[in-house]
Amino acid sequence: MTDQPAAHMHVPYFVVKQKLTMMVNRYEISESDQSFNPVRLLALAEQKRMAFKEQVTFYSDTGKSRAVFGFKARKKLDLNAGYDITDEGGQQIGFFKKDFGASLLRSTFHIEGAGFAGTGQERNQLVGLLRRFTEIPMLPIHFDFVDAQGQKLFSVERRMSIGDRYNVTVADTRVDFRIAAAVAVGLDALMAR
């Protein structure tokens, strides 16, 4: 293992699959083809259920032998503070934050990475409102993230399955896979899915 931080990595399509367990939210992140068929495991993450959503670490394998990236809240118990995304050496590579004011009607997140900044919102405001005010299970969660010029950065779409499954399309090559993966897992964790 080298002391050099990992280089920027663009992965155009990947899948985030949440595994159902009693005590832990477990996420498998796999590179996929355009049809979202997994082709290669990229990272695994675990988060204790009922714990504060302040930190998630992604590992290279099931034995958790090597932490490869993660995200951590800037302040404990302040969900409005945002989350720093770091590489395996602990260096910040990105940032995301839920915009609680804008999220009253449609969940909204702000993101930053090397060479870009953007905003992501639920694609369908009606579905967002239904998700907040009804008990309908398994409503879709679809987010589109765009830069200040309206150019698509990436999209996250939850598919119906046992356990949540998110298909992620990264249209912009400036978006590091680790940032898109951290945000996809963060959406699940922060929206208490």
Rank of each mutant, 00 (worst) to 15 (best):
Q34D: 13
A114M: 08
K19I: 10
Q91D: 10
F133P: 02
F154C: 02
H8T: 10
A181N: 08
H110L: 08
D87P: 04
D3Y: 05
G186W: 02
F36E: 04
V156P: 02
A114H: 11
M9R: 08
Y83M: 14
E112H: 07
I136G: 07
R74K: 15
H110P: 00
Q34A: 15
G90P: 12
S35K: 14
Y166Q: 13
R131H: 10
T173H: 12
Y59N: 13
K64L: 03
G101R: 08
Q18T: 09
G101Y: 03
M160Y: 11
L139S: 02
G120A: 05
E112Y: 00
N124K: 12
T62N: 08
R74I: 10
T169A: 07
M1K: 08
T86K: 13
Q151C: 01
D3N: 12
F143M: 12
L44C: 02
V16P: 00
Q121L: 01
L129N: 04
Q18N: 09
D61P: 07
R159E: 14
H110F: 05
L77W: 15
R40A: 11
A117K: 15
F145Q: 01
F133N: 11
I141E: 02
F133I: 14
V170W: 00
S103D: 06
G186C: 09
S32I: 07
V16G: 01
I85P: 07
K53Y: 04
I162Y: 06
A7K: 09
L44D: 03
D172V: 05
G115C: 07
F71W: 14
Y166L: 15
L41G: 11
R132F: 03
K64S: 09
I85Q: 09
M9I: 12
P12N: 06
R66F: 02
I85W: 07
A73W: 06
G186K: 04
R174H: 13
V170T: 11
A43D: 07
F71T: 07
F96P: 05
L79P: 09
M160D: 04
D87L: 03
K75Y: 06
D61A: 14
M9Y: 08
F69A: 11
S32Y: 05
N25Q: 09
A67Q: 13
V183E: 03
A67V: 01
T119F: 02
P140V: 04
G94Q: 02
Q4T: 08
Q18Y: 05
V15I: 07
A180V: 04
P38D: 03
A6P: 04
G163N: 06
G118F: 02
L139Y: 05
K19M: 08
R106W: 00
R131Y: 10
A51Q: 12
Q149A: 15
M160I: 14
I141H: 00
I179Q: 04
Y27W: 13
R174L: 15
G113I: 01
K75Q: 14
K76A: 10
D87S: 07
R74E: 15
M22E: 12
R158H: 09
S65A: 14
I29P: 00
V56Q: 01
G163M: 06
V11G: 04
T173P: 03
